[in-house]
Design a binder for these strands. Structure first.
Lengths: 120, 120
DNA sequence: ATATTATGCAACCATTTGCTTGCAAATATA
DNA sequence: TATATTTGCAAGCAAATGGTTGCATAATAT
C-alpha cells in the first residue's frame, strides 16, 4: 500500500489538488475539508494522509480536531522540474523550434495520419 | 483502461519524467529510449503512449522508426498550478503569513469550539 | 455521566497501473 | 527474395489506488 510517495505522485490526483487549493490560504480541519467533497470522510482522510506523508501537509492536533495546513514550499520540487523547461517552450527559441517542426511535419504528412487517430 | 489522462498524471511516474528529460532537447526514436531503461521495450512503449495521449509527446513516423519529440508547452498547466502558490512559499510574504498563522493558532488553542461552528 | 463530535483504523472491493512474454506487421538490408 | 530491425497489439498478472462501510477512541458538550 505504501509505495511511491513523492510530491509528483501526490498532486497527480485531482482531489488532492483541490484539497491543496482549499487549504492554501488558511488551515482547515479534517471534517470541514471532507464536507466539500462527494466522497466519504475516510476517503479524504486517506488523501490527507498521503499529502502529509509526502510533506505537503502539516497536521496540528487541537483538542479533538486536526488542523490541516498546506506546506506549499514542498511544491518547489515540481516547480523546479517544470521550470527547467520553461524557457524551452516560451520565447522565440520556441517559435523557431516550432517552425522547424512544422517543416518536418509537412514532409511526413502521409504517415503522420496514423498518429492522429490514436488521440482522444 | 483509459481513465484519467492528464499532464499531472503523466509526470507522476518517474520513468515518464526520465523519458521527458531524455527527449527534451531533441527527438529520439522508441528503441533508443527503451535501451536507456531497465524495463522492457513494451513497458516504455506504454509510457510513450500515455505521454502522447496527454499531449506531452509528438510521434513522427519515419520509415519503420518512430521519432518521439517532447511537447514541453503542455507542462504549462502544471507550471501555472504550481506557480500560483510560488509567491506564498517564497519571500517575506511567506514569513509574514507564517507569523500570522502562528498567532491564529495560539488563540485558537483556547477557543477551539469556534472552529467547530465555522463549518458549513 | 451520557451523548455527541472528530477522527483514525481495519477489512474489503473494483479498477488502474506497470510490467511481462509472445506474436504480427511493416520497413530496411543482405 | 530472405532476413533482420522497429514497433504495436493482446493477454495475463501482481501491486497500487481510491473508494466503501463498520467500529473504536478520544475530546467536548449537555
Amino acid at each position: 500500500m505504501e509505495a511511491r510517495r513523492d510530491v509528483f505522485q501526490a498532486i497527480a490526483d485531482p482531489t488532492r489538488r483541490a484539497i491543496i487549493d482549499m487549504i492554501a490560504q488558511q488551515p482547515v480541519n479534517v471534517n470541514t475539508i471532507a464536507e466539500q467533497f462527494d466522497v466519504s470522510r475516510q476517503a479524504i482522510s486517506l488523501h490527507l494522509k498521503i499529502l502529509s506523508e509526502c510533506g505537503l501537509l502539516n497536521i496540528k492536533q487541537l483538542g479533538r480536531e486536526r488542523l490541516c495546513e498546506a506546506k506549499l514550499e514542498k511544491l518547489n520540487e515540481v516547480h523546479e522540474w517544470v521550470g527547467q523547461y520553461h524557457k524551452l517552450w516560451t520565447g522565440r527559441l520556441n517559435a523557431l523550434k516550432k517552425f522547424i517542426e512544422q517543416e518536418e511535419l509537412e514532409s511526413n504528412k502521409k504517415k503522420a495520419k496514423n498518429i492522429n487517430k490514436s488521440k482522444k
